[in-house]
Design a binder for these strands. Structure first.
Length: 465
RNA sequence: UCCGCGGUAGCUCAAUGGCAGAGCAUGCGGCUGUUAACCGCAGGGUUGUAGGUUCGAGCCCUACCCGCGGAGCCA
């Protein structure tokens, strides 16, 4: 504001009804300065008062001398009523000029109005156009997914997308609150890594100066183990990358994952934490994001059932369920997406499947002392067909056993020397898991595709906008 | 990588092998309570690309490009 005053000597400052006006020397144009700032979500506190709102035109309807402007400001939507008898000719024409998504500020009196969406309405006294929008591509009619994704930078303005993104934000906050309240320390792993973490997935490769190839991380877990040995309980939370040419609604090439890692935890402790974690996320979102879930028309009856304890079955029991359902399944194979859906259907809340055949799981998972054929691993399958949202395990803490696994998987031992050091210097039993953020968002919001669960999805055939 | 489906106006979609159309959006006009408002008028097209069959192709055939859905892999 200082700059404006210095540059424009001939401007006059006026204060009228809590609003500052700066007029130019002809008293022709003026700039409104909001005092106080009012957002649509707070309108209930201003009933009967004059306020100034700033935002964008979501939709417009008119009826002769009456215009209905639906304003959105990111916090909500409100219908602004412009009646020709209440405003100057100039203001009425301004309202006429507004196109979809034009930005403007509007001054008016707040009124409770049952007929309007949101329950409040603004009787417009003054209106100032900030910028007239060009013809907006996303019309109030339906669009195809290709077009919407092409226009993702604009699509995020749409009601459902706003609701999803707000729920995503709340889930992230719930995740952080959960761990922070339980003595976990955030421990950020590197994004650029010298080797494949689990040795199997295809990674995004890059040239790293004179050091040869480097890769985008597919998991922060190995680094988190280092953190757990330093800080006891840690969690990582960041983007991870998979170059797999997956082409399904359950996959992105770039996605966010939260990975807690705890010293002195065994598999049972790990499962206890995982179910408490999921319950916390779901119940928090149900309690605090009612409006957004309603906007998404999400039937929350199934989500409400997500309370501890969750059913825990072994992989072998899962195979029995599949066989009982008539699925041709061989003990030893990994569970596919459809298998998971079949098993998920058996329960009304997330199901934990533990003790998988060691051969289908990663090298760092500890074998079950009571049955060396299985690893102390656990996957949590979300209901309603949303599939695996958590994968975790107790880690191999014995140096010799881990060395054997690395050789068995043909992994280059030199890359894992630092990881082996964690077993050389005060090894302890420890465990952890990873939760896929977008799958969680997708499940809670009832989405049919992961691409709507992240602002800018990265998929095999798309890296724009 | 494999299997299936699709590509027509800015968008969503129609169109027996026979004049390329509608709704929304845009522009102009009308309406004092609209809720994806409504009513009237107008502009808007190299039917993904390249070949082929045919008197005639948006439609049939071939190749390619792009996208969507699924499988595998995984969170």
């Amino acid at each position: 504001m200082k700059i404006i005053f210095q540059k424009l000597k001939f401007f006059v400052l006026c204060i009228y009804k809590q609003t500052f006006f700066i007029f130019d020397k002809h008293f022709f144009n003026y700039i409104l300065i909001m005092r106080p700032t009012v957002y649509i979500k707070d309108l209930s506190q201003h009933v009967g008062k004059e306020v100034i709102l700033k935002g964008w035109l979501y939709n417009k309807r008119s009826s002769g001398k009456l215009k209905f402007l639906i304003l959105r400001d990111g916090t909500g939507y409100v219908q602004c009523v412009v009646f020709k008898g209440n405003v100057s000719e100039e203001i009425f024409e301004s309202a006429e000029k507004l196109t979809q998504e034009s930005s403007f500020e509007v001054k008016g009196k707040v009124r409770e109005e049952k007929r309007a969406v949101g329950g409040f309405e603004l009787d417009v006294i003054d209106l100032k156009i900030i910028s007239i929008a060009h013809e907006y591509p996303i019309t109030p009619k339906e669009h195809g997914i290709e077009f919407l994704i092409d226009n993702r930078h604009l699509w995020v303005r749409s009601k459902k997308q706003v609701a999803i993104l707000k729920i995503r934000h709340r889930i992230i906050k719930a995740i952080r609150d959960f761990f922070d309240q339980r003595g976990f320390v955030l421990f950020d792993p590197p994004i650029i890594t010298p080797n494949a973490c689990e040795g199997t997935s295809t990674l995004f490769e890059m040239d790293y100066f004179d050091l040869g190839k480097a890769y985008l991380t597919q998991s922060g877990q190995l680094y988190a183990e280092s953190g757990a040995m330093a800080l006891g309980k840690v969690y990582t939370f960041g983007p991870t990358f998979r170059a797999e040419k997956s082409k399904t609604r359950r996959h992105l090439t770039e996605f966010w994952m939260v990975e807690p890692e705890m010293a002195f935890y065994n598999l049972d402790d790990d499962m206890d934490l995982a179910e408490e974690f999921i319950e916390y996320i779901i119940q928090t979102v149900l309690k605090e994001m009612k409006e957004e879930l309603k906007e998404l028309e999400r039937d929350t009856t199934n989500l409400e059932k997500v309370v501890r304890p969750f059913p825990r079955i072994s992989y072998s029991e899962a195979v029995e369920i599949l066989k009982r359902k008539g699925v041709d399944f061989q003990w030893g194979n990994d569970l596919g997406g459809t298998d998971e859906t079949f098993i998920g259907e058996e329960f009304d809340r997330p199901v934990m499947i533990h003790r998988y055949p060691a051969e289908v799981k990663a090298f760092y998972m500890k074998r079950d002392p009571e049955n060396p054929k299985v690893a102390l691993a656990v996957d949590v399958i979300a209901p309603e067909g949303y599939g695996e949202i958590i994968g975790g395990s107790q880690r191999e803490d014995d140096l010799d056993a881990l060395l054997f696994r690395i050789k068995e998987h043909n992994l280059p031992q030199s890359f894992f020397e630092w990881y082996l050091d964690l077993r050389r210097y005060g090894s302890v039993p420890h465990a952890g898991f990873g939760l896929g953020l977008e799958r969680t968002v997708s499940w809670i919001c009832g989405l049919d595709h992961l691409r709507e669960a992240i602002p800018f999805p990265r998929m095999i055939y798309r890296n724009t906008p």
